[in-house]
């Protein structure tokens, strides 16, 4: 019994310790951002590895998600004679939910895990302490540019995902299933609101980008400097990132669209 309480206490302490460390880390990383103004090259390099290299998976997934939405939506709507509303269904689903959420999940898997592994390995091979030795602050040199790049990439990737998805739905709905093209677009334009749907989608993807990049960079920086520790940190990034995205999505959706 006493042992159980002791374990619980240790678990609680380490949980709060990590939580506190994570937030202090975030503050340090944010404090490192202004120094990037003098070295934009670092951010461009990271935008390449975080954003450009994620582009392929985002475009392909967006296309297929949109096509599946078109197919499934058509099959359901045709039962009500409402297949004209297919465009609205595809566009609203993508812009409000699927775009930001699926992009963030893929982003956590593709870019987040890479960030964690890279920083974790830097730590394991003592490159980070080497930098400190040379009076280079790793927070500014390594963490801050990756953080900023993730924050910038997410909304762009989510917008690409949604746009490609809508064209995927258009291809299936209009091209293959014979929905009227004019009705497809007019329904979309009638129901998708610039402020309510598109701005909120962008806000969602910004929040997700912030959360996923923070988790990824922190896990890497906080990893146990062994090969096992790095692999565990990478797994944690994907799992915690996905959980954070899904939980945040519920909160944001309730705030934006819900009437709770």
């Amino acid at each position: 019994m006493a042992g159980m309480i002791r374990r619980l206490g240790r678990w609680g302490l380490s949980f709060f310790e990590r939580l506190g460390r994570g937030h202090l880390f975030l503050l340090e990383a944010l404090a490192g951002l202004p120094s990037l103004l003098s070295r934009p090259g670092l951010v461009v390099q990271q935008l390449y590895s975080v954003g450009v290299l994620s582009l392929l998976i985002i475009v392909v997934s967006g296309l297929f998600v949109g096509m599946v939405l078109g197919l499934q939506g058509y099959n359901t709507l045709v039962g009500f004679g409402a297949e004209q509303s297919l465009g609205m269904l595809v566009a609203l689903t993508l812009v409000r939910e699927m775009g930001p959420v699926v992009t963030a999940l893929l982003f956590a898997g593709r870019a987040g895990s890479a960030l964690t592994a890279e920083i974790g390995l830097m730590k394991a091979t003592e490159q980070l302490s080497g930098m400190e030795m040379m009076a280079v602050d790793p927070m500014r040199r390594v963490v801050a540019p990756r953080f900023l790049a993730g924050f910038i990439s997410m909304p762009l990737l989510a917008a690409i995902f949604s746009t490609v998805g809508i064209y995927g739905g258009y291809f299936v709905g209009v091209g293959l299933l014979g929905v009227d093209a004019g009705a497809f677009w007019s329904q979309i334009q009638d129901k998708v609101d610039l402020h309510e749907d598109i701005y909120n989608g962008v806000i969602k993807s910004l929040v997700f980008g912030f959360a996923v990049t923070w988790i990824a960079v922190f896990e890497g920086y906080d990893a146990t400097p062994t090969s096992e520790g790095v692999s565990r940190a990478t797994t944690r990034t994907v799992v915690h990132g996905a959980l954070a995205v899904l939980a945040l999505n519920f909160v944001l959706t309730a705030l934006m669209f819900g009437e709770i």
Binding site: V44, L47, Y48, G51, V52, L55, A91, V95, I152, S153, P155, L156, L157, A159, I160, S162, T163, V164, I166, W185, I188, Q189, D190, K191, V192, D193, L194, D197, I198, G201, V202
Partner: peptide, 24 residues
Amino acid sequence: AVGIFVALGLGALFILAMQVSNLS
């Protein structure tokens, strides 16, 4: 590559705003 990526992203946002939303 980064320039193309950012242009694509902004282009997608532009399409969402102009073509998809009720702005027009």
